[in-house]
Design a protein around this nucleic acid. Sequence first.
DNA 1: CATCGATTTCAGAAATTTCTGAAATGATAG
DNA 2: CTATCATTTCAGAAATTTCTGAAATCGATG
Lengths: 186, 186
Amino acid sequence: MIDMTLTPLQQDFILHFGEMGSRWGMNRTVGQIYALLFLSEDPLNAETITDKLRVSRSNTSMGLKELQAWNLVRLRHIPGDRRDYFTTPDDLWEIVRTLVAERRKREVDPTLTKLRELELAGPQGDAYAEARIAELREMIEMMTQFHDEMNRLETERLVQLMTMGRKLGGMLEKAPRLNPFRRAAK
Amino acid sequence: MIDMTLTPLQQDFILHFGEMGSRWGMNRTVGQIYALLFLSEDPLNAETITDKLRVSRSNTSMGLKELQAWNLVRLRHIPGDRRDYFTTPDDLWEIVRTLVAERRKREVDPTLTKLRELELAGPQGDAYAEARIAELREMIEMMTQFHDEMNRLETERLVQLMTMGRKLGGMLEKAPRLNPFRRAAK
DNA sequence: CATCGATTTCAGAAATTTCTGAAATGATAG
DNA sequence: CTATCATTTCAGAAATTTCTGAAATCGATG
């Protein structure tokens, strides 16, 4: 087997992602596996990951399963080798899109469903709570629709939008709703 | 003391937020306290919260402390009553801004710091990893800058932007970088 | 400054999550 | 079909997080 040692740079990066893992809704091992794959030019198999991270083989298996559930890794095969190899996509934008989509699925969509369900039950006589729930549902809907629109954009347009910087504000300033393209008054 | 019972609507909402709490980087009690305050028209004190949620007084205390660390609740006082009362802001946009800012602080900023630190150490001889780290740092910088710009917008502009829908794509389409305001060609 | 109510702290208990090793399952090649 | 290697499953161990009750601290009031 190849060299099992990680460079100090890799070590540091991987340990950091391990710590951040829990804040991102995954556990430490999942974060570390992801970080390792992210820094590896070539696909790695489970055995290699196990050795490099010094975790149990079964933990690696579960971590990879989890990363697949998140759509964050790609499965590859090497001719003449029957083991599974894993990589992360090269394109960082694709990674971010996936991450956002998955977090939305886990953190936002269930709440939207619940709010709709609560509203369907009809007025219960608690006007304030009902109004608050409706308002929250509307806001989440607006944000998820916006996310859908952003997601529809090709990466190049997205980057274009994101790098507009200060212009974004100016573009909208004082613009009447029906003609938002009008140049902002100096 | 007032009525300690929650309506079924409140119950359901609060239990849901308790479950979601963990996915949002807080624990169940914190999620429940937040949900309760969110649905309450008037500020509540710790004692009331404790009774309504059936948790220990100390747990409530810690939960409120956590919510204050997140800037998600406001402390209020009622004349002639020396207890602390808590509310959530009325404005949902303000809430979302806070939530996003706090999550960024916890989930993104530490990584940005770490990546910069790794780059500062200079080339270590692992060209691929170094390139990947630089690329990641650049992307995160672009996104945080974009976030800063969005944050600078007044709420009305933000809503305007978010409700633009399909127009967003059209606006950018084929637009040359130096004149992004030009109307897209039909 | 003593009292009383409100709040926080904190050590340990309880609950939950993560991780492991062993056994089971799957899959390919002979 | 069998042997062999790869992967998954899963019950329990280990680690971590959450929660509680008791004690300590805080802070206003007389």
